[in-house]
Simulated scan of single mutants.
Amino acid sequence: METLEAADITQLMLESHELSSMINQSREVSEYLQAKREMESDTEVQRLLVLFEKKKEQYEDVQRFGKYHPDYNHISKEVRELKRTIELRDSVQAFKRAEDALDELLYQVSRTIAHAVSDTIKVPSNNPFLEVQSGGCGTGGSCGCSVKKLS
């Protein structure tokens, strides 16, 4: 029978700090931080976000009564339009793209680590399409799902 060694937690922590340092020095993090600074310095985006927060409070007030509130349709429409206006700003779109690229990097690193242990470990992602690709519940067990292996 093979003897199993306990993980050297100190070594694992040192390696994880090295990995996090590498990630922090990556192009993805650099572009994310730059895009975040640009979005935060975009005065129009900041003005719209303040307005959005106020509209969101109004929306939450009318939500208590739902479609029976006299301003429900009007406030709902304003919130949707304002959200769309914010999302169409160049600085917001650049931030979202940078955020998605960083999320993808973190997902791939997490997936690599998890699958080094077992291909059936589910790796959560902010992108539902990535989770669907990784397969079912992650157990491949009695639920009847099939775990699809990505290469």
Rank of each mutant, 00 (worst) to 15 (best):
A94C: 08
L82W: 06
E38W: 01
K83T: 01
A116H: 15
S118W: 05
D71E: 11
V123F: 12
R47F: 04
I113P: 01
I75D: 04
H115T: 11
P70T: 08
K96S: 11
Q63L: 14
R97V: 08
S125Q: 09
A98Q: 11
K67C: 00
K56F: 11
K77H: 07
Q108R: 15
S76E: 04
H74I: 06
A94L: 07
A94I: 01
D103K: 15
A114L: 06
D71T: 00
V117S: 14
H74C: 01
S76P: 00
K54P: 00
V123E: 09
N126C: 03
L102E: 06
S110F: 12
L105P: 13
E40H: 08
M39Q: 12
I113H: 09
K54F: 01
E87T: 00
A98Y: 09
S125W: 05
L82P: 01
A94T: 08
E44L: 09
D42T: 07
A114E: 11
N73D: 13
Y68N: 11
E40A: 04
D61P: 01
N73Q: 11
R97K: 15
V92Y: 14
S76Q: 06
E53V: 04
H69P: 02
D61L: 05
S76H: 06
P70N: 05
Y107K: 10
R64N: 03
E60H: 03
R111C: 10
Q93D: 09
K56R: 14
E87C: 00
R111I: 02
N73P: 00
S41V: 00
E99L: 11
S41K: 10
Y72A: 05
L82F: 04
R37G: 06
